[in-house]
């Protein structure tokens, strides 16, 4: 696992991918920070964190799109799958590299908190819960988008489908009550991510929310392994 993790991490930083993602994400985060916190003369970053999800939905597919699709396309997966490692190690190596790159982005919010601390003591607990929420939200998306990447040989298709999946999962509550079937609404309720994420932005770290995000991640890691396994049999 560590070999794959190291290789993927290296690939992110020896290519422009990680830097482009950081640049774009911090540009928009910076705009939001200036517009809502500095201009609004407040120490409340809730608005910033809530709007970060949109940016992250666009950025994470860029990190995950090549993870498996490129391996398949360039036939390098043959090297991985014939090496003495199991599929879980391969998938975990790749996902944890993407999570690492993503987690480094959180440094941004610590910098913002430090800027606030020049004027007023920020609520560190609130910021901590926000960062934890954003981390869990991103990790879940990474797991889902990695799964999507394992389905196709094309990075572009993987990226577009991933953006679509992210948008759907965060906006699905809008479709609630459109149909008058309890069963459907129950499903929408149970996979709705935004409500759970918003709890974190309000400083509420609920155990059930943490489990929710982690279990979806585990589920999609499992799906990814199944996709790779299935390919061997076809």
């Amino acid at each position: 696992m560590s070999a794959i993790y190291k290789r993927e991490l290296n690939a992110y930083f020896t290519s422009p991918i990680a830097y482009v993602v950081y640049a774009v994400a911090s540009f928009f985060a910076g705009l939001l920070f200036v517009a809502t916190v500095l201009e609004g003369d407040t120490s409340d970053m809730t608005y910033l964190f809530r709007n970060m999800t949109t940016i992250i939905i666009m950025m994470i597919p860029i990190l995950t799109m090549k993870l498996f699709s490129e391996e398949k396309n360039k036939k390098t997966e043959q090297g991985l799958l014939t090496a003495p490692v199991n599929l879980l190690q391969i998938v975990m190596g790749k996902i944890s590299a993407a999570v690492t790159v993503y987690a480094l982005l959180m440094v941004l919010f610590i910098i913002y908190a430090l800027i606030i601390s020049f004027f007023v003591t920020p609520s560190w607990v609130l910021i901590g819960s926000n960062i934890l929420g954003l981390l869990l939200f991103g990790t879940t998306l990474i797991a889902i988008d990695t799964f999507i990447s394992s389905l196709t040989e094309s990075q572009v298709i993987a990226a577009i489908l991933s953006i679509g999946a992210g948008l759907l999962l965060t906006s699905i509550s809008m479709f609630k009550n459109m149909v008058d079937i309890d069963f459907v609404n129950d499903i929408i309720d149970s996979i709705e991510m935004m409500g759970r994420y918003e709890n974190f932005t309000l400083g509420m770290v609920k155990f059930s929310d943490v489990i929710f995000f982690l279990s979806i991640s585990v589920l999609f890691i499992f799906f990814t392994i199944k996709v790779l396994e299935r390919r061997r049999w076809n």
Partner: peptide, 28 residues
Amino acid sequence: IGYLPEIPPLYQDMTVKRYLEFVYDLKR
């Protein structure tokens, strides 16, 4: 087993050194 498939599984963006070190780690 050491396997050289029809299309060598080479990561184009890596240097030979990095790539061989990766394979060394991968194969433990």
